[in-house]
Structure formats: C-alpha cells, structure tokens
C-alpha cells in the first residue's frame, strides 16, 4: 500500500532496491515481479549502499533524471542496515531511502528490533518481560546527518504521503522516509484495522507526521486533536498486557516527545499555528 503511494508520488522513472524484508516476498518469487519498476534485491544490510551503487551507475551513464529508491524494513534500517544508511546519508547520496517500519522482525516471526516500542510484546520480548526500551528515534539520527529531507508518513494519511514523495522527488541528495506500517499478525490486529491503527498512531501523537529539512528545520504537518495513547495501544494485542502505570509511562513519554517536536517547529517557524496549543494540553 505504502509502496503504491510512494510510486504515485515518484512517477515511473524509478529504480528500486529492496533488502531482505517482507517485500522480498511480496514482490513475488521468480519468475514473478509485482512492481512495474526495475528492482534489485539486495542483502539485508545494504539497501542504502546498493541504491548508491545504482545511483552512481545512472549518473555515469547520464541518466540523472531516474529516481533511485531504497525500500527497507525497520530491521534493515534501524539495526543491521544503519551503518550503510549512515554512510549514504553522510555522503548525501542522491537517493530516496524509505523505511517501512512495522516495529519488529516480522518476516522471521516477530522478534524485537530497535524499532520495537516500549512495552510491546514480540517473540523475543515476551509478555513477562516486554520491550523495556523506547523505540530508536531514527528521524533524529537521520537529521543528525543534516540530510536535505527527512519525513514521516503513514498510509492512513495518503495525501500527506503522496505530497511528501512528490516533494522529495524534486530534492537532490539524501531523502529519508520513516513510514509506520502496521503488521496485522505482528501487532495482533485484524487485517482490516491496519489503516485505522496507523491513523490512531498519528492521532495519539505516538507517530507524529512531520518533516525535517536540512537536518534542522522541523515542520509538523498534522496537528492531532490528541487522543490518549491508550486508544492506540488497546487496539493492538501486542500491548494488551500493559498495566495502567505502563500506559501512563508511555503517555508521558509521548507527551514529552511531542512537546520537543512542537518546540522545534516553533524554533523553525517562529510561531505555532492556531491548532497547536490544543495539542499540548489535551489528551
């Protein structure tokens, strides 16, 4: 779904590379290929550099107008692929790197990754001792490389999603997308709820929609009315075991993160839009 929106934003002169992830399967087993763009499968930790390699080849051949996109899961980005990603970001490779984050190693059967949020159940963080650390903030890591563009997006906000990809298409240099992508079996949700859950993640400020330009300029794209995180957590089986205290802990964490983000938005723009104030007080 996210891939379709991305390609909608990018047009058809796109080449992609995909490391080991769900998409290794989704695109189809040989001889099938579901996407209508050239695609190179690559090793788990190499999405960013494989894309850089393709980019280099296209540049040498004078095909600068072709967009090169790396499309990787959270494991391939937050964990094993972080080194190559950091390298590509630091070199400001002219590629688009997309991580579709389902917050665990889903393809291998739901093991925790560094993208797994606090309190979540996975097969390696069982209910008796669930994930004890917050999710790695990949956006801040990417911003720290001072890349021209980094943005969050989710399928639940398709217009925002497509707009950002269109915008990214015309930026030269490293562009990074963090896409929250619910995984029904991994999150223990019914398949028809995936869009709803993604939307709730935004509405509860667990997953804010924002952009960071040149690593510094922060723009919040959507100001949620602000529902309690409980609404988001309780939709999902992976959080069912959480106690009230744990939920409160998450709420405080989310509120704090949101305040930071709003502050950065204010720093960037000099002021806050009208709807911002309500988001700081309401739950």
């Amino acid at each position: 779904m996210a891939m379709r929106l991305a390609l909608k934003g990018l047009g058809n002169r796109v080449m992609a590379t995909i490391p080991a992830c769900c998409w290794t399967i989704i695109d189809g087993a040989w001889p099938n290929h579901a996407l209508k763009i050239p695609l190179m499968h690559t090793a788990f930790e190499t999405a960013a550099i494989a894309a850089s390699g393709i980019r280099a080849a296209l540049d040498v051949k004078g095909e600068e107008d072709v967009t090169v996109m790396a499309w990787a899961g959270d494991g391939g980005t937050f964990d094993i692929g972080l080194q190559a990603l950091s390298g590509a970001a630091e070199r400001n490779e002219n590629i688009i790197y997309v991580t579709y984050d389902n917050e665990a190693y889903m393809n291998t059967g739901i093991q925790r990754s560094s993208a797994t949020p606090y309190g979540a159940w996975t097969t390696t963080t069982p209910v008796k001792h669930p994930e004890s650390r917050p999710k790695k903030n990949i956006m801040e890591i990417m911003a720290a490389h001072r890349i021209p563009y980094a943005a969050t997006a989710t399928i639940a906000f398709p217009d925002d999603f497509v707009r950002k990809f269109r915008k990214a298409k015309d930026i030269v240099g490293m562009r990074f997308f963090h896409i929250l992508s619910p995984c029904p079996p991994g999150w223990k949700i019914p398949s028809d709820m995936s869009v709803k859950v993604a939307r709730m993640a935004v509405e509860t400020k667990v997953f804010p929609l924002y952009e960071i330009e040149d690593g510094e300029r922060v723009t919040i794209n959507y100001w949620p009315e602000g529902r309690p995180v409980r609404d988001y957590l309780m939709m999902q089986g992976r959080f069912k075991h959480l106690t009230d205290e744990q939920i409160e802990h998450i709420q405080q964490f989310v509120d704090h993160q949101w305040k930071r983000l709003v502050h950065l938005h204010e720093l960037t723009h000099g002021s806050l839009p009208e709807e911002a104030q309500a988001t700081l007080t309401s739950r």
């Binding site: 001889p31 099938n32 290929h33």
Partner: peptide
C-alpha cells in the same frame, strides 16, 4: 540469475 520474466498477476 533470478531475473524475473513476468508480473505476478498469475498468482
């Protein structure tokens, strides 16, 4: 190598 030959519509 496993260079695909068709789309996945047969599935």
């Amino acid at each position: 190598t496993s260079v695909t030959l068709t789309d996945s519509l047969n599935n």
